[in-house]
Design a binder for these strands. Structure first.
Length: 276
DNA sequence: GACAACCTGACC
DNA sequence: GGTCAGGTTGTC
Protein backbone atom coordinates (compact mmCIF):
# COMPACT_ATOMS: atom_id res chain seq x y z
CA UNK A 1 0.00 0.00 0.00
CA UNK A 2 0.37 2.69 1.39
CA UNK A 3 3.34 4.89 1.25
CA UNK A 4 3.72 8.06 3.27
CA UNK A 5 0.84 10.10 1.76
CA UNK A 6 -1.60 7.18 2.03
CA UNK A 7 -0.61 6.45 5.62
CA UNK A 8 -0.77 10.14 6.52
CA UNK A 9 -4.28 10.34 5.02
CA UNK A 10 -5.22 7.38 7.19
CA UNK A 11 -3.62 8.98 10.24
CA UNK A 12 -5.50 12.24 9.79
CA UNK A 13 -8.87 10.50 9.51
CA UNK A 14 -8.19 8.09 12.34
CA UNK A 15 -7.15 10.91 14.62
CA UNK A 16 -10.57 12.51 14.22
CA UNK A 17 -12.41 9.23 14.51
CA UNK A 18 -10.49 7.56 17.34
CA UNK A 19 -9.18 10.10 19.82
CA UNK A 20 -11.26 10.11 22.99
CA UNK A 21 -12.83 6.71 22.35
CA UNK A 22 -12.24 3.63 24.49
CA UNK A 23 -11.60 0.08 23.35
CA UNK A 24 -14.47 -2.15 24.41
CA UNK A 25 -13.42 -5.36 22.66
CA UNK A 26 -10.88 -6.66 20.16
CA UNK A 27 -11.84 -9.57 17.92
CA UNK A 28 -8.80 -11.24 16.39
CA UNK A 29 -9.72 -13.46 13.46
CA UNK A 30 -6.15 -14.01 12.30
CA UNK A 31 -3.25 -14.51 14.68
CA UNK A 32 -0.89 -14.02 11.76
CA UNK A 33 -1.83 -10.34 11.78
CA UNK A 34 -2.03 -9.76 15.55
CA UNK A 35 -0.14 -12.39 17.53
CA UNK A 36 -0.94 -11.29 21.08
CA UNK A 37 -1.28 -8.45 23.58
CA UNK A 38 -4.67 -7.04 22.55
CA UNK A 39 -6.04 -7.61 26.07
CA UNK A 40 -3.78 -4.76 27.22
CA UNK A 41 -5.89 -2.36 25.16
CA UNK A 42 -9.24 -3.21 26.78
CA UNK A 43 -10.66 -0.18 28.60
CA UNK A 44 -7.83 2.00 27.27
CA UNK A 45 -8.71 5.41 25.91
CA UNK A 46 -7.11 6.59 22.66
CA UNK A 47 -5.09 9.77 23.19
CA UNK A 48 -3.41 10.17 19.82
CA UNK A 49 -2.55 8.74 16.40
CA UNK A 50 0.97 9.12 15.08
CA UNK A 51 2.83 7.95 12.01
CA UNK A 52 6.40 6.75 11.69
CA UNK A 53 7.24 6.38 8.01
CA UNK A 54 4.59 3.91 6.80
CA UNK A 55 3.61 2.75 10.29
CA UNK A 56 0.47 4.00 12.07
CA UNK A 57 0.81 4.23 15.85
CA UNK A 58 -2.30 4.50 18.04
CA UNK A 59 -1.48 5.66 21.57
CA UNK A 60 -3.58 4.76 24.63
CA UNK A 61 -3.84 6.39 28.04
CA UNK A 62 -2.70 3.20 29.76
CA UNK A 63 0.84 3.42 28.33
CA UNK A 64 0.28 0.95 25.51
CA UNK A 65 0.48 1.65 21.79
CA UNK A 66 -0.73 -0.29 18.78
CA UNK A 67 1.67 -0.34 15.81
CA UNK A 68 0.03 -1.05 12.47
CA UNK A 69 1.76 -1.77 9.16
CA UNK A 70 -0.50 -2.16 6.13
CA UNK A 71 2.15 -3.49 3.72
CA UNK A 72 0.65 -3.83 0.22
CA UNK A 73 -3.04 -4.44 0.72
CA UNK A 74 -3.92 -3.54 4.31
CA UNK A 75 -6.84 -1.26 5.12
CA UNK A 76 -7.97 0.48 8.30
CA UNK A 77 -11.59 1.42 7.78
CA UNK A 78 -14.53 2.47 9.92
CA UNK A 79 -16.98 2.79 7.03
CA UNK A 80 -17.57 1.14 3.71
CA UNK A 81 -19.52 -1.68 2.07
CA UNK A 82 -19.63 -5.20 3.45
CA UNK A 83 -17.98 -4.76 6.82
CA UNK A 84 -16.76 -7.04 8.19
CA UNK A 85 -15.75 -8.87 5.03
CA UNK A 86 -13.86 -11.91 3.84
CA UNK A 87 -10.54 -10.11 4.40
CA UNK A 88 -11.34 -8.60 7.80
CA UNK A 89 -8.80 -9.97 10.28
CA UNK A 90 -9.16 -7.73 13.34
CA UNK A 91 -12.17 -5.77 14.64
CA UNK A 92 -11.84 -3.10 17.31
CA UNK A 93 -15.10 -2.27 19.09
CA UNK A 94 -15.09 1.27 20.42
CA UNK A 95 -17.14 3.35 22.81
CA UNK A 96 -20.10 5.07 21.18
CA UNK A 97 -20.98 1.90 19.25
CA UNK A 98 -18.29 2.41 16.59
CA UNK A 99 -15.97 -0.16 15.06
CA UNK A 100 -12.63 -0.07 13.30
CA UNK A 101 -11.77 -2.87 10.87
CA UNK A 102 -8.35 -4.11 9.79
CA UNK A 103 -8.67 -5.72 6.36
CA UNK A 104 -5.84 -7.24 4.35
CA UNK A 105 -6.30 -9.33 1.23
CA UNK A 106 -2.73 -10.65 1.16
CA UNK A 107 -2.22 -10.85 4.93
CA UNK A 108 1.23 -9.28 4.81
CA UNK A 109 0.30 -6.54 7.25
CA UNK A 110 0.70 -6.69 11.01
CA UNK A 111 -0.42 -5.17 14.28
CA UNK A 112 1.81 -5.17 17.36
CA UNK A 113 0.87 -4.08 20.86
CA UNK A 114 3.80 -2.59 22.77
CA UNK A 115 4.49 -0.41 25.79
CA UNK A 116 4.52 3.17 24.53
CA UNK A 117 7.93 3.92 26.03
CA UNK A 118 9.50 0.99 24.14
CA UNK A 119 8.29 2.21 20.76
CA UNK A 120 11.42 3.86 19.47
CA UNK A 121 14.01 1.49 20.83
CA UNK A 122 12.58 -1.79 19.64
CA UNK A 123 11.98 -3.45 16.33
CA UNK A 124 10.82 -1.85 13.14
CA UNK A 125 10.40 1.77 14.21
CA UNK A 126 13.81 2.07 15.81
CA UNK A 127 15.51 1.34 12.50
CA UNK A 128 13.65 3.90 10.39
CA UNK A 129 15.54 6.76 8.81
CA UNK A 130 14.36 10.37 8.81
CA UNK A 131 11.38 11.18 6.63
CA UNK A 132 11.02 13.71 3.83
CA UNK A 133 8.23 15.94 4.93
CA UNK A 134 7.57 19.41 6.17
CA UNK A 135 5.20 20.69 8.80
CA UNK A 136 4.18 17.24 10.03
CA UNK A 137 3.75 18.02 13.70
CA UNK A 138 2.30 14.61 14.47
CA UNK A 139 4.82 12.52 12.63
CA UNK A 140 7.07 10.64 14.98
CA UNK A 141 10.07 10.69 12.67
CA UNK A 142 12.80 13.28 12.42
CA UNK A 143 12.46 15.43 9.30
CA UNK A 144 14.90 14.82 6.47
CA UNK A 145 17.00 17.88 5.69
CA UNK A 146 18.76 18.53 2.39
CA UNK A 147 22.11 18.18 4.17
CA UNK A 148 21.19 14.79 5.61
CA UNK A 149 19.78 13.70 2.24
CA UNK A 150 23.05 14.58 0.49
CA UNK A 151 25.00 12.68 3.12
CA UNK A 152 22.85 9.56 2.64
CA UNK A 153 23.18 9.64 -1.16
CA UNK A 154 26.93 10.16 -1.05
CA UNK A 155 27.51 7.08 1.10
CA UNK A 156 26.50 4.38 -1.33
CA UNK A 157 26.93 3.31 -4.92
CA UNK A 158 23.60 1.46 -5.05
CA UNK A 159 21.10 2.74 -7.58
CA UNK A 160 19.34 5.92 -6.53
CA UNK A 161 15.87 4.35 -6.64
CA UNK A 162 16.91 1.53 -4.30
CA UNK A 163 18.30 4.09 -1.85
CA UNK A 164 15.12 6.19 -1.94
CA UNK A 165 13.08 3.13 -1.04
CA UNK A 166 15.37 1.91 1.75
CA UNK A 167 13.35 2.64 4.92
CA UNK A 168 16.47 2.55 7.09
CA UNK A 169 17.94 5.39 5.06
CA UNK A 170 14.80 7.46 4.38
CA UNK A 171 11.36 6.46 5.62
CA UNK A 172 8.06 6.81 3.83
CA UNK A 173 8.87 6.52 0.14
CA UNK A 174 7.67 3.44 -1.71
CA UNK A 175 7.56 2.36 -5.32
CA UNK A 176 5.02 4.85 -6.68
CA UNK A 177 6.51 7.98 -5.14
CA UNK A 178 10.11 6.94 -5.82
CA UNK A 179 9.25 6.51 -9.52
CA UNK A 180 7.34 9.79 -9.67
CA UNK A 181 10.03 11.78 -7.83
CA UNK A 182 12.83 10.50 -10.11
CA UNK A 183 10.79 11.31 -13.20
CA UNK A 184 10.09 14.82 -11.92
CA UNK A 185 13.79 15.33 -11.16
CA UNK A 186 14.75 13.97 -14.62
CA UNK A 187 17.07 11.41 -13.06
CA UNK A 188 17.44 7.86 -14.34
CA UNK A 189 16.48 5.40 -11.57
CA UNK A 190 19.53 3.23 -12.37
CA UNK A 191 22.02 6.00 -11.65
CA UNK A 192 24.43 5.32 -8.82
CA UNK A 193 23.30 7.22 -5.73
CA UNK A 194 26.69 8.80 -5.20
CA UNK A 195 26.95 9.97 -8.82
CA UNK A 196 24.37 12.74 -8.36
CA UNK A 197 25.66 16.29 -8.63
CA UNK A 198 24.78 18.87 -6.00
CA UNK A 199 22.19 20.39 -8.28
CA UNK A 200 20.66 16.96 -8.98
CA UNK A 201 20.54 16.22 -5.25
CA UNK A 202 18.68 19.46 -4.64
CA UNK A 203 16.26 18.88 -7.48
CA UNK A 204 15.54 15.35 -6.32
CA UNK A 205 15.03 16.46 -2.73
CA UNK A 206 12.49 19.06 -3.85
CA UNK A 207 10.83 16.59 -6.23
CA UNK A 208 10.32 14.13 -3.39
CA UNK A 209 8.60 16.76 -1.27
CA UNK A 210 6.50 17.78 -4.24
CA UNK A 211 5.18 14.32 -5.12
CA UNK A 212 4.47 13.48 -1.48
CA UNK A 213 2.47 16.68 -1.09
CA UNK A 214 0.57 15.91 -4.28
CA UNK A 215 -0.21 12.42 -3.01
CA UNK A 216 -1.49 13.81 0.26
CA UNK A 217 -3.52 16.47 -1.49
CA UNK A 218 -5.39 13.80 -3.49
CA UNK A 219 -5.93 11.57 -0.47
CA UNK A 220 -3.41 8.95 -1.62
CA UNK A 221 -3.40 6.55 -4.56
CA UNK A 222 -6.07 3.84 -4.75
CA UNK A 223 -4.28 1.81 -7.39
CA UNK A 224 -5.11 -1.51 -5.82
CA UNK A 225 -6.60 -2.12 -2.42
CA UNK A 226 -5.98 1.18 -0.67
CA UNK A 227 -8.97 2.88 0.90
CA UNK A 228 -9.21 5.80 3.26
CA UNK A 229 -10.67 4.96 6.71
CA UNK A 230 -13.90 6.64 5.55
CA UNK A 231 -14.18 3.99 2.84
CA UNK A 232 -13.45 6.45 0.04
CA UNK A 233 -10.78 5.99 -2.60
CA UNK A 234 -7.78 8.25 -3.02
CA UNK A 235 -7.43 10.10 -6.32
CA UNK A 236 -3.69 10.44 -6.82
CA UNK A 237 -3.60 7.51 -9.28
CA UNK A 238 -5.34 9.84 -11.74
CA UNK A 239 -2.30 12.11 -11.57
CA UNK A 240 0.54 9.62 -12.07
CA UNK A 241 2.99 10.94 -14.65
CA UNK A 242 5.17 7.87 -15.02
CA UNK A 243 4.07 5.03 -12.71
CA UNK A 244 2.23 2.36 -14.67
CA UNK A 245 2.55 4.31 -17.94
CA UNK A 246 4.91 2.03 -19.82
CA UNK A 247 4.51 2.30 -23.59
CA UNK A 248 2.95 5.76 -23.40
CA UNK A 249 4.71 8.86 -24.69
CA UNK A 250 6.55 10.77 -21.95
CA UNK A 251 4.23 13.59 -20.88
CA UNK A 252 7.18 15.98 -20.52
CA UNK A 253 9.53 15.58 -23.49
CA UNK A 254 7.12 13.72 -25.84
CA UNK A 255 10.20 12.20 -27.44
CA UNK A 256 10.20 8.66 -26.09
CA UNK A 257 7.87 6.06 -24.63
CA UNK A 258 7.96 5.37 -20.91
CA UNK A 259 10.07 2.24 -20.32
CA UNK A 260 9.52 -0.40 -17.68
CA UNK A 261 12.37 -2.37 -16.12
CA UNK A 262 12.93 -4.30 -12.90
CA UNK A 263 15.09 -2.75 -10.24
CA UNK A 264 15.43 -4.48 -6.91
CA UNK A 265 12.59 -6.73 -7.98
CA UNK A 266 10.20 -3.78 -8.35
CA UNK A 267 8.54 -2.39 -11.45
CA UNK A 268 10.47 0.72 -12.42
CA UNK A 269 9.14 3.27 -14.88
CA UNK A 270 11.12 6.05 -16.52
CA UNK A 271 11.62 8.07 -19.66
CA UNK A 272 14.80 6.88 -21.41
CA UNK A 273 15.06 10.23 -23.17
CA UNK A 274 14.72 12.90 -20.50
CA UNK A 275 15.72 11.04 -17.35
CA UNK A 276 19.49 11.27 -17.51
C1' DG B 1 22.86 -7.04 -6.41
C1' DA B 2 19.28 -10.75 -7.79
C1' DC B 3 15.65 -13.77 -5.96
C1' DA B 4 12.38 -16.17 -3.23
C1' DA B 5 9.25 -15.94 0.49
C1' DC B 6 5.08 -14.36 2.82
C1' DC B 7 -0.56 -14.38 0.49
C1' DT B 8 -4.64 -13.58 -2.66
C1' DG B 9 -6.65 -11.90 -6.70
C1' DA B 10 -6.74 -9.69 -11.26
C1' DC B 11 -5.47 -9.80 -15.80
C1' DC B 12 -3.27 -11.68 -20.33
C1' DG C 1 -1.00 -21.45 -17.31
C1' DG C 2 1.98 -17.33 -16.31
C1' DT C 3 2.79 -12.57 -14.58
C1' DC C 4 2.05 -8.83 -11.78
C1' DA C 5 0.84 -6.08 -7.48
C1' DG C 6 1.74 1.07 -2.69
C1' DG C 7 6.35 -3.91 1.41
C1' DT C 8 9.80 -6.13 4.02
C1' DT C 9 13.02 -9.81 5.10
C1' DG C 10 16.12 -13.42 4.46
C1' DT C 11 19.09 -16.26 1.34
C1' DC C 12 22.56 -17.01 -1.94
Amino acid sequence: MPELPEVETIRLQLEKFLVGRKIIAVEVRSRKILADGEKNLLGGKIIGVRRFGKVVVVDFDNDYSALIHLKLTGQLVFQGPNLPGKHTHVIFSLSGGKKLYFNDLRKFGWIKIVKSDKLQVTGFIGKLGPEPFVGQASSGQAPLTLEKFREILAKTSRSIKIVLMDQEKISGLGNIYANEALWLAEINPRRSSQSLSLSEQKTLFNSILKVLKQGLRWGGASDQAYLQPSGEEGKYQEHFLVYGRQGQICPRCQKAKIAKIKLGGRGTYFCPFCQK
